[in-house]
Simulated scan of single mutants.
Amino acid sequence: MISIFIIFSVFILYFINQMTNSLCLQKEIPEERQPKVFRTINILITILLISSYIEILYA
């Protein structure tokens, strides 16, 4: 169960990062702000994935 969820999580993080990169390019976010945007989105998605795993684990 955990291995499937980890693989699923890696794909989600990868595609979210691709979409974040597209957002940065489309909105012309300056280079010096992009790491902060990526870090914030990655932290929030990781929290979401962890809470989803805990919910699945105890449901």
Rank of each mutant, 00 (worst) to 15 (best):
F15E: 06
I29N: 00
L49V: 02
I16P: 09
R33H: 03
T46H: 04
I54A: 06
Y58L: 08
I41D: 01
V10S: 06
L48V: 13
N42M: 02
L57Y: 05
A59V: 15
I45M: 13
V10R: 11
I7H: 10
E55Q: 13
I47R: 04
E28Q: 02
Q26I: 03
P30K: 02
I12A: 12
I56S: 14
S52Y: 07
I47N: 05
K27W: 04
V37P: 00
S51I: 05
V37D: 00
S3N: 05
E28A: 00
E32R: 10
E32L: 03
N21R: 09
K36S: 10
P35Q: 06
S22N: 02
S51K: 08
I12L: 15
P30C: 00
S9H: 08
Y53N: 13
T20P: 07
I12M: 04
I45H: 10
Q18L: 11
P30L: 00
R39V: 09
I56L: 09
E31P: 07
Y14D: 03
F5N: 05
N21F: 08
F8Y: 11
Y53C: 11
Q26H: 05
L23K: 02
T40G: 04
P30Q: 03
L44C: 12
I6D: 11
C24L: 00
V10C: 11
M1R: 08
T40M: 11
L23Y: 01
I4Q: 15
K36D: 12
N42R: 02
T20F: 09
L49Q: 01
Q34R: 05
Y53P: 04
E28D: 01
I56D: 08
E28N: 03
S3E: 13
P30G: 01
Y14R: 14
S51L: 10
P30T: 00
P30F: 01
I41Y: 06
K36C: 04
C24G: 01
N42L: 03
F8W: 14
N21G: 03
I4F: 13
Q26E: 07
S52M: 05
S52T: 10
R33A: 15
M1C: 04
N21E: 12
L44W: 07
I2E: 13
L57Q: 02
I2D: 06
I50M: 00
M1Y: 04
E55H: 12
I41A: 01
E31S: 08
I56F: 07
S3R: 14
F5G: 02
A59H: 15
F5W: 03
L44S: 15
I50K: 02
K27C: 00
L49A: 00
I16D: 01
Y14V: 12
I6L: 10
I43W: 06
M19C: 15
I4E: 09
Q26A: 06
F11R: 15
T40Q: 15
L13A: 09
T40V: 07
Y14N: 13
Q34M: 04
S9G: 07
I6S: 12
K36N: 15
E55K: 14
L25D: 09
F11P: 15
P30V: 00
R39I: 14
E32W: 03
S52F: 07
S3P: 12
K36F: 03
F8A: 08
L44D: 12
F8P: 06
E32T: 15
I50E: 05
K36T: 09
L25N: 11
C24H: 01
C24M: 01
Q18A: 10
I45K: 11
